[in-house]
Design a protein around this nucleic acid. Structure first.
Length: 371
DNA sequence: AACCCGGGGGT
DNA sequence: ACCCCAGGGTT
């Protein structure tokens, strides 16, 4: 603990200069060609940063191409139909990201004349823009020397500076931001921040870092003390709750299927799904009775579940769905479906945003049932 | 501070 | 099976 030094990590000027030179030289020679690096359009930088939250570069690339082609400018996104926007995000996960993004670009249109703000306070005030994303946009799009500390940066810096604070604690990010403020290049903040992340992605990887290829090796306290494999320190648990679910592929007289739009808050908000409910209990009937009860309660109709159509498992970061899928029919006609319920044909299913778990059910319909 | 929020790929 | 990913919002 450096309580006497006014420099938190005892980083003298020559260390900082070497750090920047080694890092920026390596980056200029090794950076990947990525679609969001084609220019510095703040809107495109913003979209990329939101997509990249908790999501790998290789996954994001095709989504970014398609999304920016559908919504080329900030105004295009601001005035787009939310369902179209969700559809463009389908499969990426964390769907609140794009709902918040659309809220935020509307705010930029209304309050900032359509120009993405360039001050920390204004930009951090936008929905879905936290400390990382604020720093990323300010540095990458506007060249402002703000830290952008993500998981890569914490891993890289924890090794180079030999910091063994628990990176799962929120306050630890603040510590790393102070480190970046001491190290960041004021000549090229954009490249500096991107280089830290690029190094984390390509060299200083979580499991087996390629220290022998690393441009920072001689400056790396972790490597020099043989501690690179012990860092970063990350504590905390992840326990996954299991939920037993029953879902219905329910068809009407005309061969359409019944689907439901999820509530505007919570898990998979505003996404569509096949009617389903969680049940408890082991006996065989619990599975079907729960689904029948759910449908009776929500649309006031009795159904018959004729045949088990399959079983699907879907794992979230915090939850595992074990879904029994039943094929069935309504026992009576229904005058008018409640809001958020619809009859759609098999072809029309493609127009609605479904989470991957329910895309698996669509696959069952198209491959097996063939109505 | 603790919990919620998806999905995929690497090991 | 477990980890982690260019994190943020809510309570």
């Amino acid at each position: 603990m450096n309580t006497t030094s006014n420099s938190l990590f005892s980083l003298d000027a020559s260390y900082v200069k070497q750090f920047q030179e080694q890092l920026l030289t390596w980056y200029s020679e090794n950076k990947r060609t990525l679609p969001w690096r084609e220019n510095q359009d703040p809107y495109r930088v913003w979209v990329s940063e939101i997509m990249l939250q908790q999501t790998r570069v290789d996954t994001v690339i095709p989504y970014f191409e398609r999304f920016t082609s559908l919504f080329p400018t900030l105004e295009d996104l601001a005035y787009a139909d939310e369902e179209k926007v969700l559809k463009a995000w389908e499969g990426l996960g964390y769907y609140s990201r794009v709902r918040n993004l659309q809220t935020a670009v509307k705010e930029v249109c209304e309050s900032y004349g359509g120009k993405v703000p360039d001050t920390p306070k204004e930009i951090a005030g936008l929905k879905g823009v936290g400390p990382y994303t604020a720093g990323a946009i300010l540095s990458i799009a506007y060249g402002i020397p703000e830290p952008a500390v993500d998981g890569n940066v914490m891993r890289v810096l924890s090794r180079i500076l030999l910091i063994d604070e628990d990176i799962s604690k929120p306050r630890t990010r603040i510590l790393f931001e102070k480190g970046v403020r001491e190290l960041i290049s004021h000549e090229d903040p954009s490249s500096f921040n991107q280089a830290m992340m690029e190094l984390g992605a390509l060299i200083c990887t979580p499991k087996s870092p390629a220290c022998l290829l690393c441009p920072m090796r001689e400056l790396c306290k972790g490597f020099n003390q043989g501690m690179q494999h012990e860092l970063p320190v990350k504590l905390g648990k992840t326990k996954v709750r299991k939920a037993k679910m029953s879902a219905g592929i329910l068809s009407g007289e005309d061969g359409r299927f019944l689907i439901h739009k999820r509530p505007s808050e919570g898990l998979l908000a505003n996404m569509w799904e096949f009617p389903n409910t969680e049940y408890v209990g082991e006996n065989k009937n619990a599975e079907t009775e729960a689904l029948k009860g759910y449908l009776d309660q929500n649309i006031g109709v009795k159904v018959v579940l004729e045949e088990k159509a399959g079983y699907i498992e879907h794992v979230f970061s915090h939850l595992k769905w074990e879904i029994n899928i039943w094929q069935g029919k309504l026992l009576e006609d229904i005058e008018e479906l409640p809001k958020d319920w619809k009859w759609v044909t098999a072809d029309e299913l493609d127009q609605y945003p479904f989470p991957v778990s329910h895309q698996k059910i669509i696959r069952l319909i198209k491959e097996e049932i063939i109505v």
